Amino acid sequence: MEQTTAVPREVWRRWVWTRGRVPAALAVLTAGLPVFHRVVPNSVGRVGSLLETFLPWLGLVIVVLFGWALLRRSATALVALLLPTAAWTYHFGGLLLPVGGSGPHDLVVVQHNVSDENTDPAGTARALAAVGPDLVALQELVPPALAVYERTLAPDYPYHAVRGTVGLWSKHPLTDARLLDIRPRGVTEPWSRGLRTVVHTPHGEIAAYVAHLPSVRVGAGGLASSRRDESAGLLGRAVAAEPLETVILLGDLNGTVDDRGLAPLTSRMSVAQRGFAFSFPAALPMARIDQVMARSATVPHIRTLPATGSDHLPVAARIALR
């Protein structure tokens, strides 16, 4: 009969701790990305912005590495995974915390790129109004759908302003509506994607901005976002020059709040404190590019609403006024 030899305990311990160095090294690398993502250069293919667009999905990388570490029975890799887990939790864990109760000076707003190919604008308008928001911001408004939105929203939202392809519907009076020029250089065709107006709420005047920044594309050369970045800079300067203290920005910004391309806005305004609210693409949401930001106010929570006839999901947010 063949006799088997037991592995000495010391050899077993050394084996468990020395194997799995590759997943351990990847865990350490993954830990650095949420914390030091701005170190990743943007000079070639805007790799930094591309990483920042999908930064929350590093959580899936951690799960894969955890499974790898278990298969390898590597104590070293399991211990190393504590680093990316802590980094991800520090950066994104707050978005998962329970939502607190609403305050006495809150507004509810809805932001939605309704799509210029939406075949059911009336149904989309009814779905947004059913949430009961104070403000509804829409992008990609084109005739004849614009008339449908105006007619359908009118009973609940007697005040509205439209400039170009963006508009705002409100339960509160609007004044001083004007076109906001955020057109990047080189765009010669008609291009009106910015609106600024004043909302007269029971709690005071608020400057409301509605914007639709240029689209970005991911290709072999990386992320094409130069026009989006330029438009974000123009919008950021407009917000900085706004004389009213309280500002709300609603829009399809074609970027996440971690994307450095939106730094002209995120450096001046607060973003949502709770909720991931991935809004695009509607069929398989991978990122929140529809944003609600505020100055001299906070955005305690943001969430997605059920799909409409658009390729974006609507998002609803609560604004806490100071």
Rank of each mutant, 00 (worst) to 15 (best):
P104F: 09
R183L: 00
F280A: 13
L58E: 15
R318M: 04
R227M: 07
D176K: 04
W191Q: 03
D120P: 05
F280W: 15
T53G: 06
R288H: 03
L135T: 08
L60G: 06
G251W: 11
V61P: 15
G233S: 10
R260A: 11
R19E: 07
L60C: 04
W88N: 05
T201K: 04
A316M: 04
I182N: 11
S49I: 07
A75G: 14
A125D: 03
I319E: 03
A127R: 07
E242I: 05
V247H: 07
T5E: 09
R228C: 00
L97S: 02
P34S: 01
N118W: 06
V218R: 02
L174N: 05
R21L: 11
G251A: 15
P214C: 02
D252R: 14
T304C: 00
T18C: 13
D258S: 12
D120N: 13
A211T: 00
S170T: 00
L265M: 04
S231A: 11
A25G: 13
L180R: 09
E2Y: 06
Q273M: 02
V239T: 02
M269V: 15
A69D: 11
A211S: 07
W17R: 07
A145N: 03
Y90N: 01
A241C: 05
V22D: 06
P144T: 10
T53N: 12
A208F: 08
P8G: 11
P285T: 05
N42Q: 03
N254V: 09
S192Q: 14
V61F: 14
G167T: 06
R318N: 00
T256Q: 06
D120R: 07
L60V: 12
S296T: 07
A317F: 02
V216P: 09
P121N: 02
S43N: 04
D290N: 13
H105K: 14
R9M: 14
L128Q: 15
R227Y: 13
Q139P: 05
V315L: 14
W17T: 06
P133N: 11
T197I: 11
A77T: 00
Y209F: 15
E242Y: 07
L81A: 01
P158N: 13
S310P: 12
L82G: 15
V162R: 10
L262E: 12
A86H: 01
H160Y: 11
S115C: 14
L249W: 00
V110Q: 01
P190E: 02
S231D: 07
V61G: 01
P84F: 00
R126H: 15
G255Q: 13
G236V: 13
V315G: 14
P281E: 05
E52Q: 07
W12I: 04
Q273A: 06
N113R: 11
V162Q: 04
A6L: 01
V216Y: 13
A86M: 05
G233K: 10
L265A: 12
S226D: 12
H203Y: 15
V11E: 14
G236Y: 02
P56H: 12
G275C: 02
P214K: 09
T89S: 12
H112Y: 06
L235N: 05
E140W: 04
R9G: 13
E189F: 11
L141V: 04
P34I: 02
V315T: 08
P143T: 15
Q139L: 13
T175G: 00
P155F: 15
A87N: 01
E150G: 00
G204C: 04
A317E: 08
H91S: 09
H112C: 03
V136C: 12
